[in-house]
Design a protein around this nucleic acid. Structure first.
Lengths: 193, 193
DNA sequence: GTCTATACTACGATAGAC
DNA sequence: GTCTATCGTAGTATAGAC
């Protein structure tokens, strides 16, 4: 729906008319469901982030050590990003396009921010626990979080550029498998003590 | 100038009027210098990428081993991204916003693509040489490239989100130093054999 | 809940005077 | 090389009939 449009061209690049056509409504009908364009955008972002949060949450509660938990968390995140092509771009935009957006954020956008926070707090705790247990090296946790986001969200948001770089479609099952292996292997050697 | 505007709001989010005001011209005068908005955008992107390419190129020709070269390359890239706040965002956008852009690309955009290619070929060769020499583990080179882009370009493009995550300004000298250390340390343990 | 019609603003782009 | 004026389109948003 609107997800794919916002993912491709961003908030400013998509018109309400275009969204309305794609969902088979008149433009004014769309304004009946969403008071402003920002409300629509907020709902799209919130939905996407909610989905991601649901997918990665279980990995943090399994009965296993920090290294194994991190592997499962990465598997879940990468699977979620790979299954829906628009998700990573939308997510990356919501991280990078934060400025200029508000005056005051819509409730949906606040819900999206809570989802991001929940995801981050979860893996933040995992990393700290691993470091405390001596399983992980004593790295900077915020910087490691940024690296993880870059290695996953950026990767699956890179679209045609990523396709060309890899020589194969980013979202092909083979390349998704290789991505998981690449990220986990880097962390297994670079993060695990 | 226009760099900061496009970095903040992307191609569609910036109007020619706004750019003209910021450079102290009338809108029509701007169209005299750039036939279309796409030509202006292309020139901005090409200039930014050219600057980056100039900065990172020397690191690949120093007289040192692959691991040391990679360290110098990362230092140069991170310094370049940190010095000009708009650069990383613009670069990330140019990677992620590739679709829908053309019918046919402007000459400036083609020049920008050559700069990207040149940067990538350089570090691609460095990684392959390191693997062949047994200095680096036998990782997937394209996936490592994506990881490097994510760890650097995404990080410095993350703006307010990154500031909050780190708890300090992303571009402060202290956090830039920590970023270099975090990335190089991850690679030293995770990539170097 | 969806429609037509409309208001108003901004957009990219062009023409032509200076 | 910069300006004013203008074109045509599309932008967000609202009012009101059905």
């Amino acid at each position: 729906m609107a997800e794919a449009l916002f993912a491709r061209r961003g908030f400013a690049g998509v018109g309400m008319r275009e969204v309305a056509d794609v969902v088979g409504l008149g433009k004014s009908s769309l304004f009946h469901h969403f008071k402003t364009k920002l409300h629509l955008y907020g709902e799209v972002i919130a939905r996407v982030l909610g989905r991601i949060e649901e997918r990665v949450r279980p990995a943090l509660t399994i009965d296993a050590g920090p290294a194994e938990k991190l592997d499962r968390w990465l598997d879940a995140l990468i699977d979620a990003l790979a299954e829906q092509p628009a998700t990573a771009r939308l997510l990356l935009r919501s991280l990078v396009e934060d400025e200029d957006m508000p005056p005051e954020p819509t409730p949906e956008i606040e819900s999206a921010e809570r989802a991001i926070e929940s995801i981050l707090i979860g893996v933040d705790g995992l990393l700290r626990a691993g470091i405390e247990a001596g399983v992980f090296r004593a790295v900077s946790v915020p910087h490691m979080l940024q690296t993880l986001i870059g290695a996953t969200v950026y990767h699956f948001a890179s679209g045609e550029f990523g396709d060309e770089l890899l020589g194969h479609p980013l979202l092909s099952t083979e390349e998704v498998r290789r991505r998981k292996e690449a990220v986990k292997s880097l962390l297994h050697h670079g993060l695990v003590a």
